[in-house]
Amino acid sequence: MADPLLHMTTSAAWAEVVPGGELRPGSLAEQGFVHLSTPEQVHLPANRLYAGSTDLVLLCLDPARIEPEVRWEPGVPTDPSSMLFPHLYGPLDSDSVIAVLPYRPGADGTFAPPTDLPKV
């Protein structure tokens, strides 16, 4: 069994996706891909972009169900230089989502790597 890939979004954005539909975040149009993370790295963009936010969810994705292509590429310059992030080059199909979990910051407003994720 392996860890899922993760996509972080707001609960409101996820609520707009119909079963069997697709999530098309702004990054798909702006950068050509959907940002994904591993469980060990999702807290990095969470803290950079959403520190203190209390409305985030983690979409847990089964890599075997993800289409189209996922490429492993560098993040931003402040991430560790050897760290590669998964980028999905197309919309995120809701059928690849195996769980949706709330992602809340700690008392200090920062996020930690998630625990108790489903295995795939």
Rank of each mutant, 00 (worst) to 15 (best):
D3A: 14
D3P: 05
P4L: 11
H7R: 08
M8I: 07
M8R: 04
T9L: 03
T9H: 10
A13V: 05
A15M: 10
A15I: 07
E16S: 11
V17Q: 05
V18F: 03
P19D: 10
P19H: 04
G20S: 07
R24L: 00
P25A: 09
P25W: 08
G26V: 13
G32N: 12
H35M: 12
H35P: 10
H35L: 14
H35T: 07
S37N: 09
S37W: 05
P39H: 07
E40K: 06
Q41M: 04
V42M: 00
L44A: 01
P45L: 12
N47V: 02
L49N: 13
L49E: 08
Y50K: 07
A51G: 11
S53K: 15
S53T: 02
T54P: 02
T54L: 06
D55C: 06
L56H: 00
L56F: 00
V57N: 00
V57G: 01
L59I: 12
L59C: 10
L59V: 12
C60R: 03
D62I: 02
D62S: 08
A64L: 14
A64V: 12
R65C: 13
E67I: 05
P68L: 15
P68T: 13
E69W: 10
E69R: 15
R71M: 13
W72A: 14
W72T: 10
G75Y: 08
V76T: 07
P77F: 06
T78A: 13
T78V: 13
T78D: 09
T78E: 13
S81M: 09
M83G: 07
L84D: 07
L84I: 02
F85E: 01
H87F: 07
H87G: 09
G90M: 07
G90Q: 03
P91I: 08
P91L: 04
D93V: 04
S94H: 03
S96K: 10
V97M: 04
V97I: 03
I98K: 04
I98F: 03
A99G: 05
Y103I: 04
R104A: 02
P105D: 13
P105S: 09
T110S: 08
F111S: 00
F111P: 02
A112T: 15
T115E: 14
D116V: 01
P118E: 11
K119P: 00
V120M: 02
V120S: 03
